[in-house]
Design a protein around this nucleic acid. Sequence first.
DNA 1: CTGAAAGCGCTTACAG
DNA 2: CTGAAAGCGCTTACAG
Lengths: 341, 341
Amino acid sequence: MKGGQVTIKDIARELDISPSTVSRALKDHPDISPETKKAVNELAKKLHYQPNSIAQSLRKSKTNTIGIIVPEIVHFFFSTVISGIEDVAYNAGYNVIICQSNESYEREVSDTFALLSHRVDGLLISLSRNTKNFDHFREVYERGIPMVFFDRICEELDTHRIVVDDKEGAFKAVEHLISIGCKRIAHIEGPRNLVICQQRLEGYKQALEQHGLPYDEDLVVIDNVGSRESGFERGQQLLKLDNPPDAVFAHNDMAAHGVMLAIKEAGLKIPEDIAVAGFSNWQFSSLIQPSLTTVAQPGFEMGREAARMFIDQVKQDKEDFQAQTQLLKTELIIRESTVRA
Amino acid sequence: MKGGQVTIKDIARELDISPSTVSRALKDHPDISPETKKAVNELAKKLHYQPNSIAQSLRKSKTNTIGIIVPEIVHFFFSTVISGIEDVAYNAGYNVIICQSNESYEREVSDTFALLSHRVDGLLISLSRNTKNFDHFREVYERGIPMVFFDRICEELDTHRIVVDDKEGAFKAVEHLISIGCKRIAHIEGPRNLVICQQRLEGYKQALEQHGLPYDEDLVVIDNVGSRESGFERGQQLLKLDNPPDAVFAHNDMAAHGVMLAIKEAGLKIPEDIAVAGFSNWQFSSLIQPSLTTVAQPGFEMGREAARMFIDQVKQDKEDFQAQTQLLKTELIIRESTVRA
DNA sequence: CTGAAAGCGCTTACAG
DNA sequence: CTGAAAGCGCTTACAG
């Protein structure tokens, strides 16, 4: 019992049997006599024996650990997804190592290799906003390590993926804006390299088209940051147009809030002059004034499903693997920012 | 190169040298000739060699992993602390395994043993609300594994701890309420077993005493949950008193928000009829209406310091260990909920 | 400057 | 029913 940690050898020595027998007794191997099992288990309990899972991992080439890479931990949506992953992982006997890329491509790469070095059994990933090159994940892929991308997915690799139906979510939000009488609907677009943002733009376009509204590129502005400040600036930019919008649909709730602040500052009313809708599972979109209409995403469910897809893949024969893309439904939550008296 | 993972043996075989030499070359051991080093490093790079840190961990009895146990991940304060821990840990070469107790004592115990089994080098812990027995942590302590408690600390063990100055924070908040003319200040008290809540109560009492206000136990109500709903109920309870309060200081911002909703529902005005102050680093206390005065906590800094204390302890000789309790300063943020016209 | 050997703690095919 | 041996991938004291 060196270093305070009891090992199988300690138990074997004390009972004057071999480590092999102890190992087998501990896992209730049918070969071992009931008496031996009893003696081993009692002593193990008495000494507070705990298997060294590092040794087990090395032996079995399996760590029962899942690596997660998210852009940020301090983020309602991502922490909710993590919580969902953790829930399923815990019940399936997996531990979870979490890294945050801080929206940095370089950090994402180094996180990936750190997790590989830790021999995680798989990776659950949501891309950083700045990731345009996927070589690091291609290497993971080529080593045969399961990956599941969630929300901010990578389309270049043949892996499981899970997203909400971003296009449909955006479509519903914009259709709703049209239904309350808006004719010039602007869109604050997220980073172009993120598929989810492309989809949201696509849903916006489709809704306009389907309802016979023209697509005006002056009304579509890019916001690569997605913060309140950047949304505020995009809002100001839109308000300066000769023919400003009567509604704004933003790619996320933070940006939407920034737009609202810009509208208020210009002395205009929400939703009477300009209606606003956002996108996300943002915890407190209900708290801002006026409360914000938003497309809610099932983050916890996404986490649970991502973990399940991973576990299914691990259980499966490699030959049988078929990459799947799960699409989760969003829910349009209508609030004051789009309800005209 | 089995299972797609390159090992030291693969490199040794290909170069026709021994694994020992490869190992040494890889870590730039002075004994090894420059030519050998060059050959090894080039081949390692070419084959995308990555040391198996599981094997290294087993060999060195050190995993370079920190276990974190928090009540919840989806929580602004805790996710901020985690982010701070991650920041320091990453730069010191540590990985972080995160578990959430979900405020369950049983889950906290099983998390603790799961982390021990993973042979984490240390534990950074914030207690579950329901933890009243510390045997699981006593066992960690007796095995000589470093622990740092943060925010929701354990006073029964001689470990490093880090908290904000809860008593002073509460004192400042209540003193501020007194300064705007409040005479009957109620307190929504958090779970009694949490030291931070005891301290907040203590600060409340001290402020009253120091300013010559009587302590009225009718004005102090317990809220063990700390949610908007539970705060709402406590608020209603206070409003029913024959002599209701003219201010409420709540142990957290969620409860404070619940109280505000109860006050509004009763047709009373904040802060004119009843002023409200909360406690926390709650991201959006600025967003609710009216905006909430609160005692802000430096969560990121707390995480960074907790990780630093752990790393210091690891570097130190065990004999030199002196348990420390760090006290971080809070900041009273005065907002509309306590500013009378 | 390099290698053979032992060992970290466990598991399991093989032998008895 | 039990044990000795080999091995997971690495490191390092010891020998040369």
